[in-house]
Design a protein around this nucleic acid. Structure first.
Lengths: 192, 192
DNA sequence: CAGCAATGAGACATCAGTGTCTCATGTGGG
DNA sequence: CCCACATGAGACACTGATGTCTCATTGCTG
C-alpha cells in the first residue's frame, strides 16, 4: 500500500505548507499564491494540489486558526479558578497563534454577510462566557459587556502581534502587556 | 472667471468623494474603483479625474485620516489637565474618524518597509507623549510602555469601530467602552 | 531494475481590476 | 444664444493573479 505512505507525506506537507502560509500572510496579507508556494519551498503546481485555490487556502487557514484557538481555550481551562487567572492562561496559550488570528481577523471583514464560519461564534461564546463568569463572581466590572471585552481581546491580540512583528514592542512582553491592559480594565477596582 | 466656480465645486466634490470612499472602504476594504465611484454617486471616469488611481485614492484617504487625527489631537488639548481626562477627550474627538482609522490601520500593513508617511509617526509621538506624561505625573502605571499603550489604543479603536459597524456593540457606548478599558488598565490602581 | 507517484517547471487561457481614451450630453456663464 | 467645461457612458488595451494543463524529472517501492 504505497498510498498510505504518500498520503502521510502529503498530510505532513500540507500542515507545513499551511504554517508557512500562515507565517507569510501574517506579515503580507496580500501575498501571491506564487509567494506562498515559494515560502513553503514548493512549486505553485504542488500548492494547487494541496489547496484548490486561494479561497480554499484561506478557508484552510481559517480552520487552522479555529483549531488552534479551541486548543488554546481547552488548554487554558477557562472554567477553573479565578477568571483573571483564566484570562492570563488563555492569552499565554493563544500567543503562538496571535499572528494568524490577526490575519484572519482582518480577512474576515471580507466574509461580510455570507456564511460566517460558526467555529468563530463558538469561540466568541466561550470567551464571552469567561468574562461573564468573572462578572458574576465579582472579579470583573459589569459596565463593560462580555461581547465588548471579547472584541477588545481580539483587538489587543492583533495590535500586539503587529507591534511585535514590526519591532515596536518586545515579544517577551506579549502576554504581560495584553493581560495587564485588558484585566486592569476589566477587573473591578476597589473604591479609591 | 468660471474657473473659480468650477474649482470650488471640484473641491467640494473631492471631499464628498473622499468621505464616501472612506465610509465604503471602512466596511469593504477591497471595494473596486467602480464601487467607490457608485458609492459617491459619480462615474468611474470622474473618480479618475479626482484621483489618478486607486493608490492615489488611498494616499488621499491616508492624508485625510492624518488630518482628522491631528485635528482630534488638537481639539483634545492633550497637555491640559489630568492625562486621564485628556485620553477621554482624545477618544471622544477621534470617534468620528475611527472607521477610517481602522481601514488605514490594516491597509498600512501593506506599506511595509517603504516610505512610511511621517504624519503617522508624528501622531504616534503625540499620543505616546500623553501616556508618558500620565506616567510621570503618577496617574498611569509604568510597567506598560507608552508605545504599547499607543498601539493598544489603535487596536481598541479599530475593534470598537468594527464591532459597532457589525452591530455587536452599541455605537453610543463607543467612547465609554474604549476609555474605560484602556484607562482602567493604564491608570495606576491604588494598592488594594 | 522497472514502474509508479509526486513534484517542478513552464505554457496557456481566463478573468477581474485598472488606466486611458473618445464621444455625446447637459449645464452654467458670458 | 453660444461656448466652455464637467460629466457619464462606454470601448479599449494592459496588467497581474489565477486556474488548468502538459511534460520531464526525481525518488521511492516492490
Amino acid at each position: 500500500m504505497s498510498h498510505v505512505g504518500y498520503y502521510c507525506l502529503m498530510a505532513l506537507d500540507r500542515d507545513h505548507v499551511l504554517r508557512s502560509a500562515a507565517a507569510l500572510l501574517t506579515r503580507k496579507s496580500t501575498a501571491t499564491m506564487d509567494e506562498v508556494a515559494k515560502a513553503a519551498g514548493i512549486s505553485r503546481a504542488t500548492l494547487h494540489r494541496h489547496f484548490a485555490g486561494r479561497d480554499a487556502l484561506v478557508r484552510a487557514l481559517e480552520a487552522l486558526g479555529i483549531e488552534e484557538c479551541e486548543a488554546a481555550l481547552d488548554a487554558a481551562r477557562l472554567d477553573e479558578g479565578p477568571a483573571a487567572d483564566a484570562v492570563h492562561r488563555l492569552v499565554r496559550e493563544i500567543e503562538p497563534a496571535a499572528g494568524l488570528l490577526a490575519f484572519l481577523y482582518t480577512e474576515n471583514q471580507l466574509f461580510e454577510g455570507e456564511g460566517q464560519n460558526q467555529g468563530w461564534t463558538r469561540i466568541d461564546d466561550r470567551i464571552a462566557a469567561l468574562f461573564r463568569r468573572g462578572q458574576q463572581s465579582g472579579e470583573f466590572r459589569i459596565d463593560l459587556t462580555p461581547a465588548w471585552l471579547t472584541e477588545a481581546l481580539y483587538g489587543l491580540l492583533a495590535s500586539a502581534a503587529w507591534a511585535v512583528s514590526e519591532g515596536r514592542v518586545a515579544r517577551m512582553d506579549f502576554t504581560h502587556m495584553i493581560v495587564e491592559l485588558l484585566l486592569g480594565g476589566a477587573r473591578r477596582r476597589e473604591e479609591s
